[in-house]
């Protein structure tokens, strides 16, 4: 059986890849994909702990996270589309009307 620590390392690595991706990519869609990766890294942590602790709370939490991520994706894609309609770009470097 794969020990718990391996799952935790994997999810930490996935989370970090996602976090680095958010800072280094410039396309809003890809940034959102990186955020999804981070969500799924968290799900992996929950499932691993849930199995290890023999406790169902983690499973339930994962379902909640998945549902919320789906709702967030719907809203997020709509926001990106409305941005694209007005500006014809989703590159976050060009989205800079406000200073800061």
């Amino acid at each position: 059986m794969v020990p718990l620590n391996h799952y935790l390392y994997l999810s930490a690595i996935l989370f970090s890849i996602g976090a680095v991706g958010v800072f280094t990519t410039r396309n809003a869609m890809i940034i959102y994909m990186c955020i999804e990766l981070m969500f799924n890294a968290v799900n992996l942590t929950f499932i691993a702990f849930s199995k290890f602790l023999n406790n169902l709370d983690g499973h339930i939490f994962t379902f909640m996270v998945m549902t919320v991520a789906a709702a967030e994706a719907a809203v997020g894609l709509a926001i990106i589309i409305s941005m694209f309609r007005n500006k014809e770009t989703v590159n976050v470097d060009e989205i800079n009307l406000m200073k800061g």
């Binding site: 935790l8 989370f15 996602g18 976090a19 958010v22 809003a28 940034i31 959102y32 955020i35 981070m38 969500f39 890294a41 968290v42 942590t45 929950f46 691993a48 702990f49 290890f52 602790l53 709370d57 983690g58 939490f61 996270v65 967030e72 809203v75 997020g76 926001i79 990106i80 409305s82 941005m83 007005n86 500006k87 976050v92 989205i95 800079n96 009307l97 406000m98």
Partner: peptide
């Protein structure tokens, strides 16, 4: 356009922060 821009920024940074919150919750749970 200003409204679009602020909404996009809020959305990306907001979900990014939610990931941290969730990761924290998962570690507390563990």
């Amino acid at each position: 356009l200003l409204s679009n821009e602020s909404s996009l920024k809020y959305f990306l940074l907001g979900s990014f922060a939610t990931c941290f919150l969730l990761y924290g919750i998962s570690l507390l749970y563990g």
